[in-house]
């Protein structure tokens, strides 16, 4: 028994348990006013609360310690074998944020820029720095002009003023970890589908137009949602400042069709030929064409099949007679 107690004490001294080590870190860093203060209870409720300090600050082994290097999240979230989610870091590696980091722009965001360090919570938690209500302000740290425009847009107002849980933040379009270059064709085409996730009727009717068909085939040179509706500055159609208001629509069409006239803007960019109330001329044109096609095919297919039957029969009779 005496030996066992001795062994226990010895092991405490030689191999400090994580809990014990953490407690000893709080001896200094748990004191308010201390440089690098860590709120113990807030940290323990965070996504990493179950980990020891040295899991991330692995260059610290005791007290006093020297300068502590910046934590490398990728040690668990990019390589690591312990099952930490890795998809996000892999996407980040491909993003514009990281690509420019690689050429040495120190202003570009790393994981901590958005997520913070000790108080990382699931994004649904209002304490999280990436909670949807906080996202536009988060991005505005580096993209202030975009934020100024966005916060006055219909999406921005819905999110920031009306707390609409369906309103898109920066992330819905720019994809938080992947953030592809805005010049990327694949991203521009994927955005159309993204808009359609909420505006499904509009996507369906857009796909019936030349614009929608060309983009569906993978070409970006024709009008996509944002080319007409705007992107950060998107407003309701009835807003006089909308890119599609009476005042602005001609200028918007002229971006691609420089010789467009006011009459040109009466094009239905979201036509639905089956909607008689809204598009009567289109509806009756479609009806006429449908009747014409069905009528012509019905008559001539009947004619052709009967003809084929009679001809074959006559030829068989002739052969039988010979």
């Amino acid at each position: 028994m005496k030996q066992l107690t001795l062994l226990f004490l010895l092991s405490c001294f030689l191999l400090p348990s994580p809990a014990a080590a953490k407690d000893s870190c709080y001896d200094c860093h748990g004191q308010k006013g201390m440089k690098q203060y860590v709120d113990k209870s807030a940290f323990e409720q965070s996504a990493h609360g179950h980990l020891s300090c040295t899991k991330c600050h692995f260059d610290v082994s005791g007290y006093p310690h020297g300068k502590v290097s910046k934590v490398n999240c990728g040690a668990c979230h990019f390589i690591g074998t312990e099952g930490a989610p890795k998809e996000q870091a892999r996407q980040y590696k491909l993003s514009v944020h990281n690509r420019v980091t690689a050429v040495g722009n120190a202003a570009l965001p790393t994981c901590q820029t958005c997520h913070g360090s000790h108080y990382i919570y699931p994004s649904a938690d209002t304490r999280s720095s990436t909670n949807r209500q906080k996202i536009p302000a988060l991005c505005s740290q580096c993209h202030p002009r975009e934020f100024e425009v966005y916060k006055n847009s219909i999406h921005g107002k819905q999110l920031l003023e009306d707390n609409n849980p369906a309103a898109p933040t920066c992330f819905q379009c720019h994809l938080e970890h992947l953030t592809p270059p805005t010049a990327s064709n694949a991203w521009q085409l994927a955005l159309i589908k993204q808009c359609g996730n909420c505006h499904s009727e509009e996507l369906k009717t857009y796909r019936k137009t030349y614009h929608g068909k060309v983009t569906e085939l993978g070409y970006v040179t024709v009008a996509k949602c944002a080319d007409c509706h705007g992107s950060h500055d998107i407003l309701m159609l009835n807003d006089p400042d909308s890119t599609l208001s009476q005042k602005n629509i001609l200028k918007t069409c002229q971006k691609c069709h420089p010789a467009a006239t006011p009459g040109f803007t009466k094009f239905y960019a979201h036509a639905e030929e089956k909607d008689r109330a809204k598009y009567p001329v289109l509806y009756y044109t479609f009806l006429f064409m449908t009747v014409l096609l069905l009528g012509t095919f019905a008559f001539f297919f009947t004619h052709t099949f009967l003809w084929a039957y009679r001809s074959l029969k006559e030829r068989m009779n002739k052969k039988g007679g010979e």
Binding site: G263, A271, L282, T285, F286, L293
Partner: peptide
Amino acid sequence: PEFFGRFMPGWAFNIATVIHSD
């Protein structure tokens, strides 16, 4: 479309699309 848009409303192109296609 820009030339014909001078003489007719833009929705004529929607009608033209349906006729052309069908």
